[in-house]
Design a protein around this nucleic acid. Structure first.
Lengths: 337, 337
DNA sequence: CCACCTATTGACAACGTTACCAATGTCTAT
DNA sequence: ATAGACATTGGTAACGTTGTCAATAGGTGG
């Protein structure tokens, strides 16, 4: 079904244009000190046989490839597609290509994927969160290229990190709920709280509630993936156990919207009977009515900056940029609280 | 800031275990006819220095890499993250890795990305849609590995294709709207209708409406990306021009939901004043109220089957599987029509 | 006991590219 | 005019792996 002509090599280009292989190489990679005639001869030969440089041979010879390893938990969480879109846009006009791996929130899986991908000698690595297994951390420390950890900035970066503060997010929601005079506040998480950033958010939320004199009444960490359904069932469980709860902070907008829709279809008044807050600020959560109270995070921008930092460092902009890059997030006071 | 020890090679393993390089190679790649002692010596040496096979050197020598090129329009369209998730799960237990490229719905961009990625000699290619530029098509025909085109199956596959029928989708919605007795039906699209599958859907929709004696009253193709906002503004434009429209088929759920929310917040009764239908069957469109009338497409399954077909062919399961793989989609009769 | 076969291991070359060094030619300052 | 600097081009080897062929050892049937 396929053609399979042998792919042209530098040798072919050199023979056709009557120059040495090394000269052809120099022209193709834009090395300095090439005469105009030589360049012209080689370029036209290359064009005529459709020569493409072979990145495999190139990177066997040299050091690193033009691949950027991106490891995220999953695409089904709306957060990560936005991040990946941002990264891709930042790398769009560079020769760098994204190699994507998904961990399903398992740190063992992160380790395996990373080990595998590092064997490609990538130009850089982007992964999510600041917490990694011991051996993941070792591999990253051995890795010579730039590393960006995305999503949260509450901790130490191995190299660079871009994200928003989970601690601040938890505090903002706590302050908001207390200011609105809710008294019996609960929390619902998912994914067994494996992404440590959600744990950070919850702990900060709890601590701030306690500080404000209105400690958390109850919390429920679902083991399943977050989804609208999970949010609805989380809400039901909590209310069944503890009917006097008057506000719930959900680990993300999906859970929160699921709970909201459940209330709407079961005659539970929001925020009258119960207040609901989420996290992320997904587009859709701002279009429904009432608008969801949530924290809007700049996901695309996180990805874009991560890609940009990586690109700059790979391009030779050494120095700078190491450390935490904290982006702003905003509390959206919607109609659900 | 980083460690940068030289990466161990086969030579290191061979020296440490006192065997030849080629024997070490054979053990590492599990070749036949290896004595137990040799295997043991080599394996323990490899373990002790943390040897990892170098896929770059391997694929320079051999033929193709263990990379799978995946080219999709964008991650911000909820459809593609699901596809990518499905592909990833299908490839999870193989050595294959996803290399991701995004075209932003530009066929020129598809061409550039594909050319670049093919230079890595990928094991296989997955891309979206059955329509490609002339030179994209040529490159694909030259390509020796398996190719899967995902999303739609209304046309001819270069090699394999997995998706649902856009023609059927358009017809189903047309039949549904006519059956519900809507008389003045309109259509709203986005992305300048660059993905040909949405064009196919619209044309089938129009043809079926005509056949049923209720031809399309008006259609509006927005040039912008689809989004909730775009859906709302599409609705407004159409109604401004043509107030007697009583039903609109939107190219996807995002547009449809945007229109629905607009109606809800502007006192337009749905489906009383206007009926709304979408396409995709996103999770969220089924959780809102009223539930959106739409066509539910098996996106994850499309990705999964695409990955599975690719994996099988790469593993040597030649033969079979070429051609169109049509998956089922279902009309969801929601409360918006 | 010998030709022959199989199992096991090794040597060499090659994949396509580029770093490094060498060779040639050209130009400038003294 | 000449040494030295620079521009331009070429040759060789090497990156890490594996296909191919060769070599060795042990075993088999006649």
């Amino acid at each position: 079904m396929q053609g399979k002509e042998r792919r042209p090599t530098l040798k072919d280009v050199a023979e056709l244009s009557g120059v040495s292989v090394i000269s052809a190489s120099r022209v193709m990679r834009g090395a300095p000190n090439i005469s105009a005639q030589l360049r012209e001869k080689v370029e036209s030969a290359a064009r005529s046989i459709g020569y493409q440089r072979n990145p495999i041979a190139r990177s066997l010879r040299g050091e690193s490839t033009e691949l950027v390893t991106v490891i995220v938990p999953s695409m089904s969480n709306h957060v990560f597609p936005n991040i990946v879109d941002g990264i891709d846009d930042a790398l769009k006009h560079s020769p760098l290509r994204l190699v994507l791996g998904m961990t399903k929130y398992e740190s063992r899986s992160e380790e395996i994927i990373l080990r595998d991908m590092l064997s490609w000698n990538p130009a850089g690595v982007i992964l999510s969160g600041l917490e990694h297994s011991e051996s993941t951390r070792e591999m990253l420390e051995q890795f010579a290229g730039p590393i960006v950890e995305v999503m949260d900035v509450d901790g130490d970066a191995i190299d660079m990190a871009v994200g928003t503060s989970m601690v601040q997010a938890g505090e903002l929601i706590a302050q908001h709920l207390v200011a609105r005079n809710y008294k019996r506040i609960a929390y619902v998480g998912a994914w067994g709280e494996r992404p440590k950033r959600s744990l950070k958010r919850r702990l900060a939320f709890e601590a701030e509630l306690t500080r404000l004199g209105s400690p958390l009444v109850s919390s429920l960490i679902l083991d399943e993936a977050s989804s609208l359904q999970a949010g609805a069932s989380g809400l039901q469980h909590l209310l069944a156990e503890n009917p006097e709860i008057d506000a719930i902070f959900f680990a993300n907008d999906d859970l929160a919207m699921g709970a909201l829709f459940h209330c709407q279809s079961h005659g539970i008044a929001v925020p009258g009977d119960i207040a609901i807050a989420g996290f992320n600020g997904l587009d859709i959560s701002q279009s429904i009515s009432p608008q969801l109270t949530t924290i809007a995070t700049p996901r695309y921008e996180i990805g874009h900056l991560a890609g940009e930092l990586l690109r700059q460092r790979i391009a030779g902009d050494t120095s700078s940029a190491a450390g935490l890059h904290r982006l702003e997030q905003t509390l959206i006071e919607g109609g659900t609280t």
